[in-house]
Amino acid sequence: MREHMDTSERLQQVFRKVFQKDDLLVSASTTAKDIRMWDSLTHLELIAAVEEEFNIKFSFSEVMQFNAVGDMLVALSRKSGEI
């Protein structure tokens, strides 16, 4: 559970850094619709930053299925389980 909390906090920091908004709050249910700057032009910049932070690589089909922050959390916990 603690690890999960850490993951979401770290993810939140990545979002704040990429979108340059220090008060940005993200939860598992946050989608691209909730963050004005999150669109197809910035999606992969965000993905690259998440990959860098967690030192992992997402596959193309994983990236295409990220509709909400929750999807990223699930993929991240699966990847950390694999490691």
Binding site: L44, E45, E51
Partner: peptide
């Protein structure tokens, strides 16, 4: 175009950040 041209290309180049987009 987004699904078959834009995303596959930007995915491969994503480490270049904005230049990829």
């Amino acid at each position: 175009f987004t699904a078959y041209v834009y995303y596959p290309l930007v995915y491969r180049l994503r480490s270049y950040k904005k230049a990829a987009a």
